[in-house]
């Protein structure tokens, strides 16, 4: 009996023996450019029943402080923002994270067409667990990080890094196709778009 690997590859090759591998793959269509990407991004994020706040760089610290007011907060070690009362993630256990009320992170890119933020878990976003376990995620996106559509984001992102694409709070439609926000991921998503 041959090993599974060579047998499967052998079956694939014999299945395709008379099949030409040449397939013309057309470039996927691009959407019509939108004048105000940031406005579209905000509108689309809000469609998912996430909270969106736009502010200037000067206002950022107070907007974020308001967004996590009254909650215990974890921040990634490389976050370039002082969040009062926060603890920096120092390899906290999942159980420790579960006892924390909110997380503040930066983002890598925002996608206007779909209202998506993508984290690449660099130092200002932290490892994946910290933006997952706490129930409120406050995510700071710079206006210059917003791109038009999915292909723009795919081109910017480095697949070698773990990526988390987030479109609104955790949700399910498993009960009668009725959309409910908030299952296992953060039940509240607050996106702060900073100029």
């Amino acid at each position: 009996m041959s090993d599974a690997r060579s047998e499967i590859l052998g079956r694939v090759r014999s299945a395709l023996a008379d099949v030409s591998p040449a397939v013309a793959v057309p470039a996927p269509p691009r959407i019509t450019p939108v004048a105000d990407l940031v406005a579209l991004f905000c509108e689309r994020v809000e469609d998912y029943r996430a909270t969106v706040t736009r502010c200037s760089a000067a206002e950022l610290a107070s907007v974020v402080a308001d967004a996590v007011a009254g909650l215990s907060v974890v921040v990634p070690p490389g976050l370039d923002l002082a969040v009062p009362g926060s603890v920096a993630d120092d390899d906290l256990s999942a159980a420790e994270l579960d006892a924390i009320g909110a997380v503040v992170t930066a983002a890598r890119v925002g996608i206007a067409e779909t209202g998506t933020i993508v984290l690449d878990h660099a130092d200002d976003q932290g490892r994946r667990a910290i933006s997952l376990v706490p129930d409120r995620h406050v995510c700071v996106v710079r206006e210059d990080q917003v791109v038009a559509d999915v292909p723009d984001a795919v081109a910017l992102l480095d697949p070698a890094r773990p990526l988390t694409w987030i479109s609104g709070p955790s949700a399910t439609s498993d009960i009668e196709l009725d959309r409910v926000e908030g299952v296992h991921g953060p039940r509240t998503l607050h996106v702060v778009v900073v100029a």
Partner: peptide, 10 residues
Amino acid sequence: RMNPYTSTWT
């Protein structure tokens, strides 16, 4: 337009 979460890992 997009599902709530997409995870990629390498």
